[in-house]
Computed example of a mutant assay.
Amino acid sequence: MSKTNPSTPTDLKTIGLTPFIYCSNQALFRVSRDVPLGDALAMASDFLFLAKELTKDAAYARDTDRHAWAAHYLTAMSKAVIDDVVKVLTPLAPPARTKAESKK
Rank of each mutant, 00 (worst) to 15 (best):
P95H: 14
K99C: 00
P91M: 11
R97E: 14
L89R: 01
S45G: 09
A58P: 02
I15G: 03
C23G: 10
L89P: 01
D46C: 10
V35F: 03
A61C: 11
T55P: 02
P6V: 04
D46L: 14
V35I: 15
A40P: 03
V31H: 00
R33V: 03
T98F: 10
V86Y: 05
R33N: 10
L74F: 11
K3P: 04
A42T: 14
L92E: 15
H67M: 08
C23P: 02
Y60I: 00
L28A: 12
S24N: 12
D46N: 10
P36K: 01
N25I: 05
L48T: 12
V88G: 06
N5V: 04
A70G: 05
K103G: 00
E53I: 02
P9A: 06
L41V: 04
F47K: 08
H67N: 09
S7H: 13
K56N: 11
P36G: 00
D84R: 02
P94N: 12
A93H: 11
D83A: 04
K103V: 07
D63L: 04
D63T: 10
F49T: 15
S102H: 05
G16F: 11
K13D: 00
I21K: 01
Y60V: 00
L41A: 10
C23M: 12
N5G: 03
I21L: 04
L50W: 10
A70Y: 03
P9D: 06
I82M: 13
L37A: 01
K56Q: 12
K103D: 00
K13E: 00
D63Y: 06
T18H: 01
S7I: 13
F29V: 03
T64F: 07
V88A: 12
D34M: 04
Y73T: 01
R30D: 07
L89T: 01
K3Q: 13
D84H: 03
A61H: 08
D63S: 09
A58T: 00
V35C: 07
P95C: 08
G38N: 12
C23E: 15
A93F: 09
K56V: 10
A76R: 05
P94D: 13
A27S: 14
V31A: 02
D65M: 05
I21N: 07
D34T: 04
L50A: 10
P91Q: 12
